[in-house]
Design a binder for these strands. Sequence first.
DNA 1: TTGTTAGTGTGTCATTTGACACAATTGTTG
DNA 2: CAACAATTGTGTCAAATGACACACTAACAA
Lengths: 191, 191
Amino acid sequence: MDALQLFFEESHQLSQRDLGYLVDHFEKVSVPKGTVLFEQGAIVDAVYFVGEGVLHHYNYNEEGQKVTLDLHEGPCFCTNLESFSERKICQDSCVALTDCTLYILQKAKYDTLVNTNVKWSNFAKDIIAKTLMKMLNQLKAVSNKSIEQRYLELLKNNPLIVQNASIAMIASYLGTSRETLHRIRRRNILV
Amino acid sequence: MDALQLFFEESHQLSQRDLGYLVDHFEKVSVPKGTVLFEQGAIVDAVYFVGEGVLHHYNYNEEGQKVTLDLHEGPCFCTNLESFSERKICQDSCVALTDCTLYILQKAKYDTLVNTNVKWSNFAKDIIAKTLMKMLNQLKAVSNKSIEQRYLELLKNNPLIVQNASIAMIASYLGTSRETLHRIRRRNILV
DNA sequence: TTGTTAGTGTGTCATTTGACACAATTGTTG
DNA sequence: CAACAATTGTGTCAAATGACACACTAACAA
């Protein structure tokens, strides 16, 4: 079973006909570790659904240091919404940390989809709303948890991320230094 | 000029006819300081647009302490999206810290709007997408800034929030302790 | 093999933070 | 006004953190 189809079946109730119609708008590709999905300075012209694999989503701060914005583990959607929907120059980059199975929805096909039928417009609205809710819930969770708790949960829930991202990426993602994350790992060496 | 109308005119290009049609779905009310917009345990059945005023959006963590999720200053939208769109029991509360001018869009009217016409569905999608982008940009900003920088920016950009929220609310909002925020204020007494 | 580079592990130390205790101030109610 | 509650201001101290410096390891190319 295709990862994309499976994802939509579990998250939204669609008829087989609608499901097929929707999935046909995506292009399935397999890409190797190191592939750049989108990059600082360009316009992001697609939404990516990651079937399998891990992505590093980052940008550079004023001091020129890489800052990890997110570490994605499939199945999940990934794009830069601001660049994609408003055709702005993107300030972030996104790179595959493992070989990935991607399903690509080009901007032109997306636009046709959401402008022709209220069903698909509401469908897109739903996905964006769910993304927003997930983010808000994450923020809520973060505010009550120590870096150590968050690292241990990442290890438990997303072992692929911990395996494939460097300690520096993860430290930046958790909002701490490489050294502090190392102390945490040493303390929890048994876990 | 109505705050709601002004907001839509600046953020979206709509015909006068569409603008009027849209605004007619909202009910304008003035409420005093202390008014509860929505509350833990209930289902949020409206979207609120705050014309003028300041809101405290919070919940309780496992230890039973109030945690500030957000401090809103009008003009802005406010609701609990998860409760509103999926009719779930809300875990947060939202209370007016000042007298407020509110524009209320009931769930039933919202549903009619987004289900009848692809224009309004895309309009709602846009607002949700903008909210998500704003949140992502805030997160990006936060990761590079100290609590002190963030407090000083809040003071500069949202003086009404600093004036009307307690030091404890703001400390929780910034993710630090009351004492630390106090040290920051003492250091920057001249600002 | 050697050299090079990127990433990781480690120790030291000055600073910052949170927690706690309590004083001072403000606001509210009878 | 007095009494009380809520909020804010303050000092002390142990613990956590970031910054820095450098050793160690792994991967890779020449």
